[in-house]
Design a protein around this nucleic acid. Structure first.
Lengths: 281, 281
DNA sequence: GATCAAAATCCCAATAATTGAGATTCACGG
DNA sequence: CCGTGAATCTCAATTATTGGGATTTTGATC
């Protein structure tokens, strides 16, 4: 972290202001939040606006602009993880009742990248783009389990440690992770949504480099031992097959996508959809 | 255009490399394309990668990353144009057979932002994020008609001028635009897709400041004079109502979203979906 | 239409941050 | 174990960026 391109980071920091809680920012609020001088901020805004990353809202605010949509449209059809994993979730959704997801892990977040649902209506599905909690659930655990130990330790919020299960001690947790890693999948009952069982497998770009997960969630009501075993086998095999594409040849260079020094809080992952806009006086 | 934040623009230029034709770039190809020195490029890449805008592809390439998806997810629910226009296209799709679109105009492009389709299966719909041709169709004409004259002149590619209709002279075209502007809507038969009629109305943030359009496209087969008149009235009124939200109070400051010095070519708007990747040797 | 306040931009010198050539380290495969 | 190519580091030169304050532009009000 020696080298830094400060100016670029300062521009991108503007985009980071926009969250589910605050979707509209006035230039003055930005100045206060970021501490930039007025001419500098306006220079940055001009750059972002003429590139389409920001647009003016009716009032005096700014919101995210259409370039973001254009890029996502491109990404949908170039992300190698989507390309590689799409056939698998399609099969999963055909074979079992529920919702199959591809998720990516980045910067201390888990993001749904693509989903496929079986014919019968699924339980509350995370839509594409929705951040997911890293503290709970099969997906998060399967990723945590494959992280280097220092990242594991950093990401665990002690306050919610108990949520990881009855085992609270660090050693017990480490043992759990080791088991998950060896199994190649993880099953969780009702940790994210009550009455829903999730099975997830890690997608690895190297020994200890999880980049995402493939998973399926089903209503616990329709689950039985035989079916669960079949799902777990399919998830494990799918995850391994996809990982093969990313491990096989070549590199995972610039592996700097390591988690930042975040401590995850609940508000990072809004459960509800719409929230009232706050304006600061 | 006196003030410029060069460094930031150079970083954003990296994202501009990714197009429908070329979805994967190696660092060396980037160096060649952009002319950055190696350390500088890698500094930029580090910034973009750790922010999640780029990720490593299996080979030695880079593709767009999950942060793009996350931002688009946010934008979907904060764009005031979507918020304002969503009810209208819902009504339109209920009332008439076809596909109703909200489009945004930015940087010499028209981008589909949201769409709603009526029960009966529609004709080839543009999905969210897809760029559309600015040279043809009701949407483009309704936006062109409401642009300042210097922008109109700049955007018209003389070579395809004839496509604007039988009127080739500048005066005739200007007369057409004036009429469209006064009418408050525009109807086009089969200009984008044969056998499809489109009706579009402008969404204005000021006298000569179109920011997008609301439109509906139907199969010409199901169209008749009465129905078309009803559609045109609904489109005109919807467009006016939405524009009211953007004109009414306050500003459209930083109106620097003016079109760049592009000349639009067909390849800016790929009609087909998948294209083979080109790699440079 | 003229005037006023707020918002956005311009000017320009100081300075701090960015840059790139070359050396170095790192990652991986043979 | 070593060799090859990729990625990063070092560091001095210099360039581009920054911000205070003046200025223009915008939109609102009278």
């Amino acid at each position: 972290m020696t080298s830094t391109s400060g100016s670029g980071e300062r521009i991108l920091a503007i985009l980071d202001l926009f969250t589910a809680d605050r979707r509209e920012w006035s230039p003055d609020a930005m100045m206060a939040a970021l501490g930039y001088s007025r001419p500098t901020l306006y220079r940055y805004l001009k750059t972002l606006k003429s590139a389409g990353y920001l647009v003016s809202a009716p009032g005096d605010g700014l919101t995210l602009g259409p370039r973001v949509t254009e890029l996502d449209f491109l990404m949908q059809r170039c992300d190698p993880l989507i390309t590689a994993a799409a056939p698998f979730i399609k099969i999963l959704a055909t074979r079992y009742p529920g919702v199959a997801l591809i998720t990516r892990w980045y910067g201390s977040k888990i993001l749904c990248i693509a989903s496929e649902r079986s014919a019968d209506a699924p339980v509350s599905s995370y839509p594409r783009g929705q951040p997911m909690p890293i503290a709970r659930g099969a997906i998060s655990r399967v990723i945590m389990a494959n992280l280097p130990r220092r990242d594991q330790d950093r990401l665990i919020d002690p306050q919610r440690d108990m949520l990881a299960g009855p085992n609270t001690t660090a050693d017990a947790r480490r043992e759990t992770y080791r088991a998950v890693r060896r199994m190649g999948y993880c099953t969780a009952w009702g940790e994210v949504t009550p009455g829903v069982v999730g099975v997830a497998g890690p997608i690895l770009a190297g020994e200890r480099m999880p980049i995402g997960a493939i998973s399926i969630t089903s209503a616990a009501a329709v689950m039985n031992k035989t079916r669960l075993a079949a799902i777990e086998r399919d998830i494990r095999d799918s995850a391994a097959a996809i990982s093969g594409i990313f491990c096989a040849r070549g590199s995972a260079p610039l592996r700097d996508l390591s988690p930042a020094n975040h401590t995850i809080t609940d508000q990072d992952f809004p459960a509800t959809d719409q929230q009232p806009r706050r304006h600061q006086p």
